[in-house]
């Protein structure tokens, strides 16, 4: 009855996107071969993705349809702290509709609005961030008709080294499992991880396994949800060579990969 292929994300059936942004001190390191830091890369990616979501929501009459609601959760800006990543007039809000997002940008950069600024300050309380995302998703699903909506998608952007994951990452893994069990009538919450690094030249997109790299990379891959048939179909349409057991994990992807990642994760 609830076939996700029959679901159109619309203002009557919106989709929640939750972005977890690593703002720890290590994000100040250079991103791959780029001249800028990982924190700048993440801020650029988030701003580009929000803009891309806006493109999917603007109608012919200039009206923005509330097809998406977006949460930005920052972690590591202060020690062991998690807070809303919205700034300016949206400061303190957890979830903002796309309509309001475009009413209150922080400013413009190259004729494009921006909402998020780069930060690289303290440690990496990633578990706490996922715990907040879990509660946010649960509350959102219980709200109004959201059970009949596309399941929320959590996109975590990090350099990977959680400081509150516990022994053998047990605490973090436990949170992830709890999140993956949260569901709407159209399926379970998805977790996608975008792993950015100082290493250059080894981009990995939606792999079916990760054998190389460090333990944090492998952890993020294991945390990522498997792409469902619909996602695989869209990814293949976008030109990605995707295997059936691919997971929502990207290592050192660029902004275009991140936007395609969004398009893969959410039906058109």
């Amino acid at each position: 009855m609830y076939d996700i292929r029959n679901l159109t994300i619309s203002s009557t059936n919106p989709c929640l996107l939750v972005y977890l942004i690593d703002q720890s001190g290590s994000m100040s390191y250079q991103f791959g071969n780029a001249l800028h830091s990982q924190a700048v890369e993440v801020a650029n990616a988030i701003n580009d993705i929000i803009y891309e979501v806006g493109l999917r929501c603007i109608g012919s009459g200039g009206e923005l349809k509330n097809r998406f609601e977006i949460a930005i959760i920052g972690y590591g800006k202060e020690e062991n702290a998690v807070q809303s990543g919205w700034e300016g007039q949206l400061s303190g809000k957890w979830v903002v509709s796309i309509k309001n997002i475009f009413e209150f940008p922080l400013g413009q950069d190259n004729d494009k609005p921006i909402w998020v600024k780069p930060y690289a300050n303290s440690n990496t309380p990633m578990t706490k961030a996922f715990e907040n995302a879990k509660r946010l998703c649960k509350d959102w699903i219980e709200w109004g008709n959201h059970r009949d909506c596309h399941p929320p998608i959590i996109i975590n952007i990090t350099d990977g080294e959680a400081t509150d994951a516990g022994d053998s990452f047990y605490v973090l893994k436990n949170q992830i499992e709890q999140i993956k069990n949260i569901q709407t009538n159209y399926g379970n919450v998805s977790i996608l991880n975008i792993h950015i690094s100082t290493r250059a030249g080894d981009k990995i997109l939606f792999p079916s396994e990760v054998t190389s790299g460090d333990k944090f990379g492998r952890l993020l891959f294991e945390m990522s949800s498997p792409l469902d048939d619909n996602m695989i179909r869209i990814a293949q349409q976008k030109g990605y060579n995707i295997q059936n057991n691919a997971r929502g994990y990207v290592f050192n992807g660029n902004a275009t990969d991140l936007i395609n990642f969004l398009n893969i994760g959410t039906p058109q």
């Binding site: 803009y51 806006g54 493109l55 603007i58 923005l64 475009f102 009413e103």
Partner: peptide, 15 residues
């Protein structure tokens, strides 16, 4: 005719 809101106008131009 593009929107008065610069953020929306930016979307319309991109589209």
């Amino acid at each position: 005719e593009f929107s008065f809101n610069p953020a929306k106008a930016s979307l319309e131009k991109a589209k």
